[in-house]
């Protein structure tokens, strides 16, 4: 049966080969898209990807692995056996996806990883994603600047403890803070990306440390929980107020942009979603037509912006449009 699916894969590769010379049109191209999960940010991501694929006149075959590495492997294998032109995947398990990518490529189908980087980038045709570590570092440096050498208590909310993006956003923040011994991380609260847990965590941290100076909320959905606690404590004050708590967030969703415009958070690091999607789709189509992809991996660092420059930056931030 392994032979059978190799054959089908080969056949699919052969079938798509002639179109390689017909680069002007991508009409017969179907891109298999495999998401790790569906949550608010992924909904936006899916929309960006759908737009990009439509713009390229290709078709999309979508599947959601729902936080299950096995299901993702099975879904990608199915797409391969159905003869899609290329795969774009947000891997759930960044280790398992290496082998999935290799076997897909071995079957003659390009494998593009999006957003979440695999542990071994050499195993994919092309990777395009944000740079969680860079984002974390930017956030860390911002806190160092904000603290300005004075004692500074920081609450760090964490997303999924077993999620690579989450881990890196956290670790690189910590690295950047090492330079400033005046900053203490008073608590690292695991939340599983759940705003309700972000709320409880913020409430508890404020209880332990009423003199909290900063909150790191590395995904926009957490902000709602943070704001509601601050509001209850009369601490939801605009940037610039002496009692304002410095908040840095990552994602760049419309809600994040609104928070910046309302001057509620100091810094937002926006993931360039449309650009990521466009590049992923372009690479997938090009690779499926036999083209060579250079460079093989790209990391688009988030675009930092704050209340003071949001007007100027708005055109570059997807969440600030529309």
């Amino acid at each position: 049966m392994r032979k059978a699916y190799l054959q089908i894969g080969l056949a699919a590769a052969l079938l798509t080969a002639p179109t390689a010379f017909d680069a002007a049109s991508a009409k017969d191209i179907t891109i298999g898209v495999s998401f790790d999960k569906i949550e608010p940010f992924r909904v936006a991501e899916k929309k960006a990807l759908t737009d990009a694929i439509e713009a390229a006149h290709a078709k999309m075959d979508f599947a959601n692995a729902d936080k299950d590495a096995q299901r993702q492997a099975s879904q990608v294998d199915t797409m391969v056996s159905q003869g899609v032109s290329a795969i774009i995947a947000i891997p759930w398990d960044i280790e398992a996806a290496n082998d999935l990518a290799r076997s897909t490529i071995a079957a003659g189908i390009p494998f593009v990883s999006l957003d979440q980087a695999l542990s071994d980038l050499k195993s994919v045709t092309y990777h395009i994603g944000g740079d969680p570590c860079a984002d974390g570092k930017v956030a860390g440096e911002f806190f160092v600047k904000a603290a300005a050498g004075k004692p500074f208590k920081l609450l760090e909310l964490q997303g999924g403890l077993a999620n690579d993006n989450g881990i890196r956003r956290s670790r690189c923040l910590d690295d950047a803070l090492k330079a400033a011994p005046n900053i203490t991380i008073v608590a690292q609260v695991p939340t599983d990306w759940n705003p309700q847990k972000a709320l409880d965590g913020t409430e508890n941290a404020l209880q332990a440390h009423p003199d909290l100076a900063g909150i790191y909320a590395p995904w926009n959905d957490a902000l709602q929980g943070v704001f509601s606690v601050l509001k209850a404590k009369n601490l939801l004050l605009p940037v610039g107020d002496p009692k304002h708590i410095t908040i840095v967030s990552i994602d760049g969703t419309p809600l994040g942009c609104k928070a910046v415009r309302d001057r509620l958070i100091d810094l937002e690091i926006a993931t360039p979603l449309p650009e990521m999607s466009r590049r992923a789709v372009a690479a997938a189509i090009k690779a499926s037509q036999g083209g060579k992809i250079e460079p093989q991996a790209e990391f688009l660092p988030g675009i930092p912006y704050g209340p003071d420059n949001v007007k100027a930056m708005a055109s570059k931030i997807w969440g600030c449009q529309g």
């Binding site: 398990d93 398992a96 542990s119």
Partner: peptide, 12 residues
């Protein structure tokens, strides 16, 4: 399991 791996999965 989380403590052992720091949350990462173990591949390669």
């Amino acid at each position: 399991a989380m403590l052992i791996t720091g949350g990462h999965s173990v591949g390669r």
